[in-house]
Design a protein around this nucleic acid. Structure first.
Length: 678
DNA sequence: CATTTCGTAAACACGT
DNA sequence: GACGTGTTTACGAAAT
């Protein structure tokens, strides 16, 4: 359903997806099956990839700085010297001062400066407009990146801290690891898009890749921290700058190195790369300090200058010291067509990155929202007996316990899209999409029909929305909800119309469908009664009819399985359902509250039915479920294969005497479901 | 692409 | 004969 932001892996799709699967597996595995060893190795992988993502981040950040400085520089150049001789190549010492000033005090172009630049008519007004916007965007971008990087650092720190307590809180750790993987994958996606952008620029002729590039000044980064993928990326990125410079380019890589060094990233990186460092108690607490511009800290650092080399895109001129670099900058990279073009390219890169950043931030937000919601969704994602993240657990508990009114099946405050919300709860925003689509919702989503109905009862009652369940499921639910687990046809009709606004019209159609289903499916057994006939459900047959495999959240199933008692989801659904169904449900309260058993069994049946075919070994060897001897079914539906089934309705869930411990006896937990589903 | 499942329509039988 | 109930067949869409 969520078109998998998660699955977007760039550099190593296979490894990443496998890793994700693995983590997912572990996050959904009960504590008893936890194996710390693979977690560690995979965690290392995560960290490695996180480092990669951080490096990308740093690159972006530094690139932005470069572009920003470029803009400032050009602006200063034009302001100071452009009026006199825009084309001048002779080195004027006076130029150095404003340039350096510009480097020290990065600011947005003032209107006066803009006016001056305009008067020079070096750039068209449109270009200047773009420049101005670009610079403002750059400031914003830089801010965002700083925040983002900070966040990432905090994530890393959290992860490391958790790793320190590995074994104690494996669940939480894995959760965070999973989330982090998602974040990191998103970063990788950014990386990919950056590559794509550069490639597109290439195709447009704006850039050309020079194949025989010497393999770059990546040494500081390659000190065991940068994986090969990133190196490759750097090659591509840096080699894709300007065509003319025969000297080679890769300056932004240098920029990255300086940025990397100036920030505290390397130390983190090395720490991260060694997961045992933290477990050995050597974890040095990193306070994620704010990224400060290099030229703010060091007066003689410049985004375009590093390691004695000019880092102007496409230039690799060696500059002895900073002064010579400034001279070089003013002479070789003065405002001319080439520099303008290069700047424009850089602007496009930045623009694209900014765009992508916005998109990815949005996506990230959606991801976080999704994860949060899922963790606070007690009914569809019941907490297993072993601990979950304490934060989400407490939150979900606090949200679930005051059994919210059924009228508000959704958390009213959460602005969640129906997609991220999962199938179980329907919001009003999704009601318009349900109309024509039909069939297999339940199978697709694997949502227990009873819980779904319980949660969305009010919605179904009022909104003319087709319930996402098949007729068979609905009929079965209606029957199971009845005190006696048997209904006449007319009662089934009434249940349909009572529960679903959708079935208040086109009666002929859906009634015909109901009859058709009752007759067609073997799971519905007609039982003669004194005053006619009633319909009951044969659970075995019903489950046989559900060959759909689990396509939804595997953790959900596992969680539900891991918690044998189904206490939490059951109670939640029950409370919601009973609050809504108070009248019909409590009518039979004297009989030990059969509705509870009904609903519980319904949920379990649904769940079991959904899982039935995951372990396809045998669906027939379902445990002996004390078949209540039904009355005499008038008509036994044809069962060509199983002769023993023709002898009688063995597993009728019916007839007068309900079993109070109905849900207790019928345990389907006799065998653990295969872990390796999918 | 074949098969299965499901929804819909409709014909038919039977009893009231 | 109308109506409700129940069975069955047929067909198309969707999913597998």
């Amino acid at each position: 359903m969520f078109q998998c932001v998660f699955s977007s892996s760039v550099l190593q799709p296979h490894r990443t997806s496998c890793l994700f699967k693995h983590l997912f597996y572990h996050s959904a595995t009960p504590a008893s099956q936890k194996q710390p060893e693979p977690i560690y190795s995979k965690k290392t992988e995560i960290q490695r990839q996180t480092v990669r993502a951080l490096s990308v981040k740093l690159f972006i950040f530094s690139a932005l700085q470069v572009a920003r400085q470029l803009l400032l520089q050009q602006q200063q150049q034009q302001q100071v010297s452009g009026l006199k001789s825009p084309k001048r190549n002779d080195k004027q010492p006076a130029l150095q001062v404003p340039v350096s000033v510009a480097m020290m005090t990065p600011q947005v172009i003032t209107p006066q400066q803009m006016q001056q630049i305009l008067q020079q008519q070096v750039l068209s007004p449109q270009q200047l407009q773009v420049l101005l916007q670009q610079q403002q965007a750059l400031m914003l971008q830089q801010q965002q990146l700083q925040e983002f990087y900070k966040k990432q650092q905090e994530q890393l720190q959290l992860q490391l801290l958790q790793q320190q307590h590995a074994g104690k809180q494996p669940k939480e750790q894995q959760q965070v690891a999973t989330q982090q993987l998602a974040f990191q994958q998103q970063l990788l996606q950014m990386q990919q898009l950056q590559q794509q952008h550069l490639l597109s620029l290439q195709r447009q002729g704006l850039l050309t890749i020079q194949p025989g590039q010497p393999a770059l000044p990546l040494q500081p980064l390659t000190q065991g921290m940068i994986p090969a993928e990133l190196q490759q990326l750097w090659k591509e990125v840096t080699s894709a700058h300007t065509p003319e410079e025969a000297t080679g380019n890769n300056h932004s890589s240098l920029d990255l190195t300086t940025t990397c060094v100036s920030s505290s990233a390397p130390s983190k990186t090395s720490l991260i790369m060694n997961p045992h460092a933290s477990t050995n108690g050597q974890l040095s607490v990193h306070t994620p300090k704010r990224e400060s511009l290099p030229n703010e800290e060091h007066p003689h650092s410049h985004p375009l200058y590093g390691h004695g080399v000019c880092k102007w895109p496409g230039c690799e001129a060696v500059c002895e010291d900073f002064q010579s670099f400034l001279k070089h900058l003013n002479s070789e990279h003065a405002l001319d067509d080439r520099s303008t073009a290069q700047c424009r390219v850089q602007m496009q890169v930045v623009q694209q990155l900014e765009l992508q950043l916005a998109k990815d931030k949005e996506r990230l937000q959606a991801m976080m929202t999704h994860l949060h919601v899922k963790s606070t969704e007690p009914k569809t994602a019941p907490q297993p007996l072993n601990l979950v993240s304490s934060v989400t657990l407490s939150k979900s508990a606090s949200e679930a316990s005051p059994q919210s009114l059924p009228h508000t099946p959704t958390t009213p405050t959460a602005p969640i899209t129906p997609v991220t919300q999962g199938p179980s709860v329907i919001t009003t925003t999704s009601m318009h999409t349900v109309g024509p689509i039909r069939r297999r919702y339940s199978d697709k989503y694997n949502v227990p029909i009873s819980s779904d109905i319980a949660q969305n009862q009010e919605f179904y009652k009022n909104a003319e929305v087709r319930p996402p369940f098949t007729y068979a499921s609905l009929i079965r639910q209606a029957i199971l909800e009845s005190p006696e687990k048997q209904l006449t046809l007319n009662e089934i009709y009434n249940w349909f119309t009572r529960m679903f606004a959708y079935f208040r019209r086109n009666a002929a159609t859906w009634k015909n469908a109901v009859r058709h289903n009752l007759s067609l499916h073997k799971c519905f057994v007609r039982v003669e009664n004194v005053k006619g006939a009633v319909w009951t459900v044969d659970e075995v047959e019903f489950q046989k009819r559900r060959p759909q495999k689990i396509s939804g959240n595997p953790s959900l199933i596992k969680n539900m399985q891991s918690s044998h008692a189904y206490c939490t989801p059951l109670n939640a659904a029950l409370q919601a359902s009973m609050a809504e169904n108070s009248i019909p449900l409590y009518t039979t309260a004297s009989m030990g509250n059969p509705s509870l058993g009904t609903l519980a069994s319904a949920m379990r049946e649904e769940l079991n039915g959904a899982m039935e075919h995951t372990n396809s070994n045998e669906s027939d060897s379902s445990p002996g479920r004390s078949p209540l001897q039904a009355a005499h079914p008038v008509h036994v539906k044809e069962e060509p294969l199983d002769p023993e089934e023709a002898e009688g309705p063995l597993s009728l869930v019916t007839t007068a005497n309900h079993s109070p411990d109905f849900d207790q006896d019928r345990d389907y937990e006799d065998e653990p479901v295969n872990e390796d589903m999918e």
